[in-house]
Nucleic acid binder design. Structure first.
Length: 411
RNA sequence: GGAGGGGUUCCCGAGCGGUCAAAGGGAGCAGACUGUAAAUCUGCCGGCCACGCCUUCGGAGGUUCGAAUCCUCCCCCCUCCA
């Protein structure tokens, strides 16, 4: 953070950009004032955002928020990226119906490392500071924690829906979980944050920070929330544990394929939240499709291509398009098929055992079922008998389902 | 501290001495249909070269020809009272 003066666009101009796609903004007036003051002083706003390093991979859902952070950066402001190493030991109860298992120190640090690296695929490294919240939360000690806890009441804590529902539903809530929002709130105090961003599920936590800051002699932070992105299944929010996510480090074909498999309804939503189209642009595209001017599939290809290009570049995106057309639209074989070499033998190999060995099926039982269901092809021929055996020599192309190809060479 | 309810396969949830590898739903996988869409429909959904055997119903013992189901102890959760 340098002391040099910076130039900022007029507050209203900044506001116009920042407000876009935001669900909660508390409050717009306060934000305008902060923007004006920062412009007068030539000092960037400190925009805080916290990440719980529990699941190490960043997915498209996170990028909705990161793109908003990026906008602040592009306007000249400073993002403070808080790695919740301390709070990870508590486990954020947000949106949870169960207590989270705590992580070990090593896991947390390893996750934080991966997280940060992936975050900077979207964020501007130059205008970001990474901090670990154990820096100020650990020294707080039991005494400080108790003082902090004294600033809030149980009744207020239970206003929060996650807690309320668990409480009413007879699902356990551990006392330490009540400390999570307070710890996160204290991050804002320690950093004297001007603004804190989060997903809509963070509204409660963000508000706690806002509320306790004046107790510590600070101006309350402005809070902004962005929508939660629905995962590939189209219903739940995107999350790694639900397996409905598209990771930013997923392979190009992987990203492309996952995007193509989402429903049309979801596609408009993704256009809105993940691209520069915004709500109006997404609506316009939908109308174009509804009028039959463009096939929804093509619009989905555009979206998939754009997202692959964002994380892997244009060349990779073009290849992904080609690959997709080839394998799925024309049902041809992909260019690249993994090959495994197994020792040749005189005895034929029992197919289910081979599928298990090559990882194409989890067990021989599962392999049998796949064969029974008609999902296994050898050199393009559907296998009819689960007792099928094949000579353990030469080369063989195995296909399981629509997507799994493997060349097996015996030699 | 007292009284009561409960822990079942990935998740929810039935079962309450044999007919239980355990209903139903969800998720997942495969097939059909398609735009690899989505929705829908069908099948599968513990393991094992397998019409039989093995391992599962919080944990450890026990009763019984036979237990997820009964008994004992332990662990964990919830509700009400204090």
């Amino acid at each position: 953070m340098s002391a040099e003066r910076r130039e900022f666009p007029p507050a209203d101009e900044q506001l116009r950009v920042l407000r876009r796609g935001v669900v909660d903004l508390i409050s717009e007036d306060e934000l305008r004032q902060k923007l004006e003051r920062s412009r007068d002083d030539g000092r960037p706003l400190s925009v805080k955002v916290g990440f719980d390093p529990t699941a190490p991979d960043i997915h498209l859902g996170h990028t909705v928020l990161m793109r908003k952070m990026r906008q602040f950066q592009d306007l000249g402001h400073q993002v403070v990226y808080v790695i919740g190493d301390f709070t990870a030991a508590i486990g954020d109860p947000s949106g949870r119906s169960k207590t989270r298992p705590p992580l070990t120190r090593e896991q947390i640090l390893a996750n934080a490392e991966t997280y940060t690296r992936q975050a900077f695929m979207t964020l501007d490294r130059e205008r970001a500071v990474t901090r670990f919240n154990s820096e100020w939360l650990s020294p707080l000690g039991a005494e400080g924690m108790i003082k902090l806890a004294a600033k809030y009441t149980v009744a207020r804590m239970l206003e929060r829906r996650d807690f309320r529902e668990r409480f009413d539903g007879g699902v356990p809530i551990s006392v330490h979980e009540l400390l999570y929002p307070l710890a996160q709130a204290y991050d804002s105090v320690a950093l004297a944050a001007d603004v804190e961003l989060g997903g809509t599920d963070q509204l409660f936590n963000l508000n706690v920070g806002r509320e306790i800051m004046p107790d510590y002699g600070l101006a309350p932070q402005v809070i902004m929330t962005v929508p939660l992105l629905e995962g590939t299944d189209g219903s739940d929010k995107m999350s790694k544990s639900l397996g409905n996510y598209v990771g930013v480090t997923d392979a190009p074909n992987e990203i492309f394929g996952k995007v193509m498999s989402i429903s049309d309804t979801l596609m408009w939503r993704w256009y809105e939240l993940l691209t520069d189209e915004g709500a109006e642009g997404a609506r316009a595209l939908r109308e174009v499709a509804e009028r039959g001017e463009r096939h929804p599939r093509d619009l989905k290809v555009d979206l998939a291509r754009l997202l692959v290009a964002r994380f892997h570049g244009d060349a990779a995106a073009d290849e992904a398009v080609t690959h997709f057309e080839q394998v799925f639209a024309r049902k041809e074989l992909p260019d690249e098929i993994a090959t495994v070499t197994l020792p040749a033998a005189d005895e034929p190999v029992w197919l289910p055992a081979l599928l298990k060995e090559t990882g194409l099926a989890a067990s021989t039982s599962a392999a049998r079922r796949l064969i029974q269901g008609g999902g296994v092809k050898l050199d393009g021929e559907k296998v009819v008998s689960e007792e099928a055996s094949i000579p353990a020599r030469g080369e063989l192309l195995i296909q399981v389902g629509k997507r799994h190809f493997l060349r097996v060479r015996f030699g």
